[in-house]
Structure formats: structure tokens, C-alpha cells
Nucleic acid binder design. Structure first.
Length: 299
DNA sequence: AACACAAGCAACCGCTGCTGG
DNA sequence: TCCAGCAGCGGTTGCTTGTGT
């Protein structure tokens, strides 16, 4: 193995490449104060030019760290915590199609970050997948024995299996504890770590279910919370996307509404049994246009 | 109550590809 | 056309928290 000098994580780690970064780059968990600085800067200038963000804010963080913190944690509209049954199914199906292309998968779940999905896959779904595959193998072996014995067997497509509850419990019966899409992401750690939120009771413990006990953050980037946030609509803060999934400015986190919800075609494909789906596609789309956008018909 | 182990997740790392000079 | 800089992406790490003994 050829030994190379370790590559700097990002450009601002390189000695001498910036004039302002004369001190060590800070690593590790972000402090609430840093979050505030970053959010304030992005509020003013927008989430771009990450190198300038790092340099201008005085944060001793490299540009990548700033970008990651924003995209994975501070960005408004992201949902954290419990994944719903539907989200799980989407992830499982898209992963079977796309593999570990987390950003592509995340583009169909715009409230989730690729990092979140990746973590969720690695910690939850991968294990489930192994269990399911083992069950399928066992079932297939049993069916084969049945056929060998002269019996009748039926096959089920993976899609049918997924439409059922193949994981052994009823997803939809589980409570969907939606994490509020607010700047609680910032205010919660602020409250917990600094205890500086006037609106939060000093004696109340942090929310355990992912929801926040903070009644009114003193600022918010959330459009839907109806808070008295002094910030403009996020459309003013966040530059409108170019084309989803295209290139580095593909706006993977800032998709327009068509990406914010699954398209009907995609929903169709994900959640309907295959035969039913194909019948529907054939009936409803005499032209190949719709089918051309359907992953299974397309392939 | 204390310790060990496991799980979850935020952040780091480095490669890749796009853009503009 | 080439090259440097920048941002995106996926893999990995290590810290924190939860759970069992």
C-alpha cells in the first residue's frame, strides 16, 4: 500500500488556503450557540457559499461541517425521529431499486435527510431485511419440498410481500409521532443545554417523544407553525432549486412540491400489488408516457 | 447502584463530479 | 482542453443513551 499524506477533509482545512482560518478547525458536536450563529447567517445570506459561511461567521468550523449541520439538522422542514410505516416501505422499496443511493432515496422523502435514512437503514431496516429474506428462503424451501412432493404451490412477488406486513407487525397501527418541522431543532438543544428559553418552564423535563415542550421559540424558520417568527418565508431564505437531482446545485433538499410528495405513479408502484398495478397502468395510460415514468414498467 | 454491552445517531472523512476561469 | 475549487454523496467512526445483568 502506498502511503499518502492524509487529505484534508475540505479546502478550509488546508493550511494557507484561507486567510481567516488561522486557528484550528473545531470538530465534534455543535453547540447551540454555533447553531444560532449558523442559522442567523443563513437567514441573512442563504445556504450557499459554504466556505464563506465558515469564514464570515467566525465559526471555527470548516465549510463541510457547516453545510452538514445545516442540511442534516438545522434546515427547516426536516422531520426527525420516528419513521412512519409508509416511509419505511418507501425506503425498503427504493433501496431495493437504487441500492445505497441515499440521496436519491431521500429525494422521495424530502422531510428526511439522506443521513437520517442511511442511519435508519443501517440500524433498523437492514436487520429486518435479513429476517425477511431468511423467512422467504425458508418459505421457498418449504414450497419447493411441497412441489417435489407433487403438491401445488403459489409464488408471491416481492411487491406482494411488501404490501402485506412482511415484517411481522402492523406498521400502520403504530403511532406516527411526527416530529414538528420547526426550529425546535435549534431551540430544543438550546433549552436543554442553556436553559435560556424564557417560554420554557425551567422545571419541565425535555420532551421524550421528539416533540418539543417549547411553546414559542424566539425565532423560527418554520412556515407552518404560525409562530411570530421574525424570519421571512423560507422561499426567501432558500434559493429555489434548479432541477431536482441534477448536479451539485440539484437542490436535493429544496425540491419543489412534485418531489415533496410521492407522485401518484410512484405511490401506485410502491404500494399496489404488482399485477393490480400493471392492470391499472395499462388501463389508465394508453400512451407509454406514464409507464415511462413508472420504475417497474419502465424497466 | 454500578458496570457492561448494544443501539442509535451526529459528525467526520475522503472520493467524485460539476463548474468556471 | 485543462485545472483548481467547491459542493454532494456514501461509508465510517465514535460519542451518547438505553437496557440488561
Amino acid at each position: 500500500m502506498e502511503s499518502r499524506p492524509p487529505m484534508p477533509w475540505c479546502a478550509c482545512d488546508r493550511a494557507g488556503t484561507t486567510t481567516t482560518m488561522t486557528t484550528a478547525i473545531k470538530k465534534g458536536p455543535w453547540m447551540p450557540e454555533e447553531d444560532l450563529v449558523l442559522v442567523s447567517y443563513i437567514h441573512e445570506h442563504g445556504p450557499s457559499k459554504w466556505r464563506h459561511v465558515a469564514a464570515s461567521t467566525g465559526l471555527m468550523r470548516c465549510s463541510k461541517s457547516c453545510r452538514l449541520r445545516w442540511t442534516n439538522y438545522l434546515r427547516p422542514g426536516i422531520r426527525r425521529g420516528h419513521f412512519t410505516a409508509r416511509e419505511e416501505r418507501v425506503i425498503v422499496h427504493l433501496h431495493s431499486l437504487l441500492g445505497n443511493r441515499w440521496a436519491a432515496i431521500a429525494s422521495h422523502l424530502p422531510q428526511r435527510t439522506d443521513n437520517d435514512i442511511k442511519n435508519y437503514w443501517n440500524t433498523h431496516l437492514k436487520k429486518k431485511k435479513v429476517v425477511v429474506e431468511e423467512q422467504q428462503r425458508a418459505a421457498a424451501a418449504a414450497a419447493k419440498r411441497h412441489v417435489d412432493d407433487g403438491g401445488i404451490t403459489t409464488s408471491r412477488s416481492p411487491r406482494l410481500l411488501a404490501k402485506d406486513d412482511s415484517y411481522g407487525y402492523d406498521y400502520d397501527a403504530r403511532p406516527a409521532a411526527a416530529y414538528p418541522c420547526t426550529m425546535d431543532n435549534v431551540s430544543k438543544p438550546l433549552k436543554v443545554k442553556l436553559g435560556c428559553m424564557k417560554s420554557a418552564s425551567s422545571s419541565s423535563p425535555p420532551a421524550q417523544d421528539g416533540s418539543s415542550s417549547i411553546r414559542r421559540p424566539f425565532f423560527s424558520l418554520d412556515q407552518t407553525s404560525g409562530s411570530t417568527a421574525p424570519l421571512p418565508p423560507i422561499s426567501n431564505v432558500v434559493p429555489q432549486p434548479v432541477l431536482a437531482g441534477q448536479g451539485r446545485h440539484g437542490g436535493r433538499f429544496f425540491h419543489e412540491p412534485p418531489q415533496q410528495q410521492l407522485s401518484s405513479i410512484m405511490e401506485n408502484w410502491l404500494f399496489l400489488p404488482k399485477q393490480q398495478h400493471q392492470q391499472q397502468m395499462t388501463a389508465s395510460s394508453p400512451t407509454p408516457t406514464a409507464a415511462a415514468h413508472c420504475p417497474c414498467c419502465f424497466s
